[in-house]
Write a protein that binds this DNA or RNA. Structure first.
Lengths: 219, 219, 219, 219
DNA sequence: CATGAATGAGTGTTCATTCAT
DNA sequence: AATGAATGAACACTCATTCAT
């Protein structure tokens, strides 16, 4: 299943267009934005950390906001990658044997993605409420497509009887909350804890599938 | 169970110490901070919205950061309220007949709290990563106490056989993720949706207890 | 005829609304703008010359351009003053016995005005080509009204036979060119020359009335 | 009389030394300087409009000010051309039969010159007050020589009785004001008006010779 | 020759904070 | 207590100029 993750390729192909100075600037900006927040970050500090003159930043990025969007935009696209349908030969493409496999793949994969793009994701989450452009882009280009895809998968497994017949939005919310809850704990709240990822993922999947009561659902 | 919620009392007793101008300032600051973010908020705008002179803000709050902390601090305390043990006469105080009742009470109660303190919570979440003082205060005074209390409750119901014998931290994470996931969806992501809160809370509790597979846990 | 010149009153009444710092700022701005030109003038230099902090300028004038317009606007109004009709009791108001008297009054008066507002006029002339707002304001509020008034006067004296029957626009252009030509020479090009104003004004009026040939017009 | 106008030759001979890129740069600089003013013009915009790299400008012109002077300098020289004495065989050279002919030739000729060099003249007038080098060059090389020549002509016609016996500087000022007044109106203030140049020139000359009163000079 | 990336001093402007009234 | 005028450091951004390629 690895072959479907094209984010690295996208990233690399994009990086090819960047000069070393641009890369320094982006790295420094990610660092400073994630550490201080966009509004409190000074372009002078970014320049200093990147080892370039302040004017150089504005050669490549017309404004500070441009710099922000240049960091977040591509990452948002790459967030989307694993949810892009490979709809070849007209068949519905749900390449998972069961829901657990889907969850496991998703968690492992997005955990890795989040690990690699941790600071950018932090910036993204912090700034979405204040940047209407970002919010809109996120809602239209990312969220809706991811949801659409996941709805499809959930309904596929509902039909197969692996997922209970309750409202799909609620099932989604519950599933996603559990996954994101794990990722946040793992990376943000307790990053220094000595995690056994495989076991934790199994636990998370177990909770999502069977809850915490240990009894069959009464419905 | 209402008698345990002392947050309003705390709030009122605190408010009694405040002059009308202070209240205006706090209200305006909450408005502006939550709308623009702390760093991008101008004290002049807060003053204008509060209907006071710029200098007046600094009479009550030494710095802008002081103003921020004065908003968030008390709210953090009130977040804690329902988790405070009323450990009178030495008995362990777990005033819930079963885990579901606890969850239902918790969700209803914190949903109401979040609704009432929505903007402040937004500020809190936004600023915690950038204000070490806040982070520390939150970790030491709030999070640890809440967790301690919830651990107690979870283990109580584990002992009663209502909750399965898996690692408590994982159970906590899972439970809390599901609850917070609901709250975020309800208030932040889709606030305008026409929610049937009672049904959604039932669904959420059902998921937490039994997951989404509809089958008994295989463990 | 002195009573008609209300420009000083206008100026004074306006000045009354200004704080000492504002006056310093305006004076310094006039100095620096006229010396270096608007675009090449630094607000920091204006602040320094005015003896205020740079921020103080922007307390009173939102932008540098605002400062420019605040200087030029009132002066443009005062340029207009002597041409404002005092059209009381419905009579046409041409309070001059003959054209020469009109010219003499005009030259003396506007020479004095230009002397007093020399630097501002320099700024005005320099910046009109580059500030559409100024150009428009000047054309609509000043130039058209002055011309309208002067046309009226010229045609009045045409009817009386004191001015020849040639196209009024050409007469105006010729008259105004001669007056302005004198003012520019007097104040701008050769300010240090030892001028006998009364004699020069007489000569200028003589030229306007009879040209340089010493013979009667052949028409 | 055409043979005396050497400006085109000067221009062409100078142009011969210029590479195509230099010509592009000069044209672009004239455009941008006249539109925005020297101080507000960006060399980057000039480079872009000229279709060359920013660095190329500085290969030919050491500084931005150099570029300005390179534009204005030659034009100033060409302004001088018609006033240069062709003092061959020691005779005083006043090749005009009467003063009116001189005026007519002057106006037609300088109108054409101004038309052709309109933008440069605009730059020249705008920048002379701020560029001491220009001011000095203009006063010493141009103004004094033109005046010297015109004084000569005026006194020639004074001696012939065609011009009245009043102070030559005043006669000059009056004459030049009237000519320049016409040129400014014609080209700058009302360029879009439908002018009948021949008639307007006749009127202007008539005013200069006989004024506007229609009566013989009383002197 | 010509380029254009890189510079860094300088720009207009903002804003938290102070303090005389 | 309350004001708001005044501050000046910091900010995002510009631009003439340099220089390695």
């Amino acid at each position: 299943m690895e072959e479907q993750w094209i984010e690295e390729l996208l990233a690399i192909s994009e990086d090819e267009k960047l000069t070393p100075k641009q890369i320094s600037i982006l790295q420094a900006a990610i660092e400073v934005f994630s550490e201080k927040g966009y509004a409190a970050a000074a372009t002078s500090e970014i320049a200093q950390m990147a080892g370039v003159a302040e004017g150089t930043i504005f050669r490549y990025y017309k404004t500070k906001k441009d710099l922000l969007l240049s960091i977040i935009g591509p990452t948002m696209s790459r967030m989307l990658a694993p949810f892009v349908l490979r709809n070849f030969n007209g068949l519905l493409d749900v390449p998972y044997d069961n829901f657990e496999e889907f969850l496991r793949t998703l968690i492992i994969n997005r955990l890795e993605f989040a690990r690699r793009n941790f600071k950018i994701l932090k910036i993204l989450i912090q700034e979405i409420p204040f940047q209407p452009k970002l919010k809109e882009q996120f809602a239209e280009n990312i969220l809706s497509k991811v949801l659409e895809r996941v709805v499809e998968i959930v309904e596929h497994f509902k039909a197969k009887g692996e997922v209970i017949e309750l409202p799909t939005p609620a099932i989604l919310r519950f599933t996603i909350s559990s996954v994101i809850g794990y990722l946040l704990n793992r990376l943000l709240l307790q990053p220094e804890k000595d995690w056994n990822d495989e076991e934790e993922i199994n636990l998370t999947i177990h909770f999502i599938m069977h809850g915490i009561s240990g009894a069959a659902a009464p419905i």
